[in-house]
Nucleic acid binder design. Structure first.
Lengths: 202, 202
DNA sequence: ACCGGCATGTAACTGGTTACATGATTAT
DNA sequence: ATAATCATGTAACCAGTTACATGCCGGT
């Protein structure tokens, strides 16, 4: 279960409420693991039961409460163990690849439109990841700054190096995706010019 | 729900029993969408209810039955509609990227071991995908051969072109993954040579 | 007699999505 | 007043995994 380790990892930067975690893991942030609050609150409860995090009760205004969660020493041990060991990758399921492998069965114009859209999306994702990588390489994302206020200075450069490399990697994967889809779109386009293709499979 | 469209797509090649489909979609085949028989049988029942496939009852031996499923015209229309339109991509969740972004918090030797293993796995996957692409480019996988016995000859070259491009794409994505992870491992290795890194975060 | 492959299903569980539900605080 | 944001939860549902369950057929 990766969500629990994602939470533990984020909480090593600073303590957060469930709400803050859900903001951070909301699929906007250029983050690596998205989750909604409806997943996060039960996950926090479980991590707390297991003693991997502890909750500091606080108040908002007069009566309403909030809880700030902090990773415990047991939690840090669990995280380091998980991070240090190899975990077999789940089977990849990319719905676009599935769609693409049957694109010979639809009108070429529709196939090209899908492929071009995919290129656009992947290129936008690459840009986003590269920008995030650049910020991390400067130590200038909000979270890494907070992390640095709590960690020794001699670890900072290494952290920036590793974290920015991951987002550069994400970007180059997105560029690889854009590249093959673009090439296939070009190929199909070239064929439309050359000769008509039967629109439906036989 | 992509599984249903994966099934429809495979059934355009030839009619199959649930068992044959589950063999084909078992995570071995170098295929794009893996599924187990426990998912496939209920999915087939639903597709049948909706009239997108029809079941031809057959017999095995004396008493035991088997059902061969064939895509219907309604099923083909549904498939072409799905294939022709853009579908927003689900948020990607790559557990290795999540692990990698916190690798600065573990001993460098463990980080390098994980990264090298990842490189190995991704490179093996790239080889598998490239081999499959090569077979498809020759029209020599078992399924595409059967497909060609049922489809007009003038569609064959185009089908090989599209389908092999998809697996080449899968391969180049795997290579991109191997590349960034390998570079990061090299970087960390270089740093170990240069200066000691604190093993634990502060 | 026994084993591997063919063939079909169900059940329990986990992880993730969407919708439902509530209410305080803060800024306009 | 009222809307946006902070804050916390539950419930229903969908997709996927693992385990349970059955039984025939063909080969050794």
């Amino acid at each position: 279960m990766s969500l629990r380790h994602a939470i533990l990892g984020v909480l090593t930067a600073r303590p957060m409420t469930g709400y803050e975690l859900s903001q951070f893991l909301a699929s906007s942030t250029g983050w690596l693991w998205s989750a909604t609050h409806s997943q996060i609150y039960p996950a926090l409860a479980k991590l707390r039961e297991q003693g991997l995090i502890e909750g500091i009760e606080g108040v908002r205004g007069e009566s309403l409460r909030k809880v700030e969660y902090r990773i415990t020493e047991a939690g840090e041990r669990e995280l380091v163990t998980w991070l240090s060991s190899w975990h077999d990758l789940p089977d990849e399921r990319d719905p676009f690849l599935l769609q693409a492998v049957f694109l010979d069965q639809v009108p070429p114009a529709a196939a090209i439109a899908c492929l071009r859209k995919y290129v656009e999306v992947q290129e936008a994702d690459a840009v986003r990841a590269e920008q995030h990588a650049a910020l991390l390489a400067q130590g200038e994302t909000p979270l890494i700054r907070e992390r640095f206020t709590r960690s020794p200075a001699e670890t900072h450069e290494y952290a920036m190096l590793v974290k920015s490399a991951v987002f550069r990697g994400q970007a180059s994967v997105a560029r690889a995706r854009a590249a093959w889809a673009g090439e296939l779109a070009d190929l199909i386009e070239a064929r439309i010019g050359a000769e008509p293709i039967p629109a439906e499979r036989g």
